[in-house]
Write a protein that binds this DNA or RNA. Structure first.
Lengths: 165, 165
DNA sequence: CCTGAAATTCTCTTCAC
DNA sequence: GTGAAGAGAATTTCAGG
């Protein structure tokens, strides 16, 4: 499906504040409230917008430690096998299969380093896991769910910024 | 600050649907709308809830490729130096310093593999970057911003689930 | 700390154009 | 796409538990 600049502007407004009113968004992007609503409804139907969520400070809920864990798996392990296994661990907030030496990369959130260790133990206990390699996060520098245009981004001559919302 | 189970339930409701009405949330958690509003206001003031955002399908905006890039930096590179540099690249959606061999781990979103390559080139051009090691994401298995209780999570005897919202 | 209600204001939603 | 109008929700305030 095709998104025009107005759709992108509306998405950007909703990413910044999902509780903004249609009138507020309309004022910002140059449309009437009803036109904004119609576009938002369409963006949700087509799946461009999948929902609205609260941004929560993990530390406020006790999740003060994060780590990345590389998984090295047995020869014929399928992505879905890994997916099923890591889905059982709520501490795994992100997981994907990747190119390179490791087969998968997990992002885990935990209450402390001891908790990280226990989660890694459980992952390592999966029969298809040959070994793991972990990195504890020292300091978070950037955390955005999406690509957004920040102040004066350096975009080169081949303007990839075409897609930046 | 202290969060009780009602606060966690409200946060969970808002994470699932940030546009739910106070009455809806109240019905779900067993409070009146005005009590919910009072608590949500407090959760925002104390910083537990930092805002409300739209969940967007990156592919709908053209971001179909993602990669993780490990950064190996010169001896005395500070985290903020890395932060400033990667903040200039809108494609970097997440960045942190980590323990282990690499100094930092970046998560980048791009339109295609060629675009990934260009972003890595720009990162590698930073004077403090000694070398990089990249992994392209093959398939995403899990993507949640936060730790949430999923169906029947296996939680061991030392119940870390105390903090799961 | 909660409820429930009333009054005001604002927002959503629909519809004609 | 706009604008208007009725339905519905948010907000604020209050008395009372």
């Amino acid at each position: 499906m095709e998104l025009d600049q107005l759709d992108r502007d509306i998405i950007r407004a909703l990413v910044e504040d999902a509780r903004a009113t249609y009138a507020e968004i309309g004022h910002r992007v140059g449309l009437s409230a009803s036109a904004v609503k119609r576009r938002v409804d369409r963006l949700r139907e087509t799946g461009a917008i999948t929902g609205f969520t609260a941004r929560v400070e993990p530390a406020a809920l006790g999740w003060t430690t994060e780590a990345y864990v590389e998984l090295f798996c047995a020869g014929k392990t399928s992505p879905s096998e890994i997916g099923v296994a890591v889905s059982r661990l709520p501490e795994v907030v992100s997981a994907c299969t990747i190119t390179g030496e490791a087969d998968a990369l997990l992002h885990i959130r935990a209450t402390d380093v001891r908790h990280v260790e226990k989660v890694i133990e459980r992952i390592a206990a999966e029969p298809f896991v040959v070994r793991t390699k972990s990195s504890i996060v020292l300091s978070r520098l950037i955390e955005t769910p999406l690509v957004t245009s920040r102040d004066e981004p350096f975009i080169g001559p081949h303007n990839e910024s075409a897609f930046i919302i």
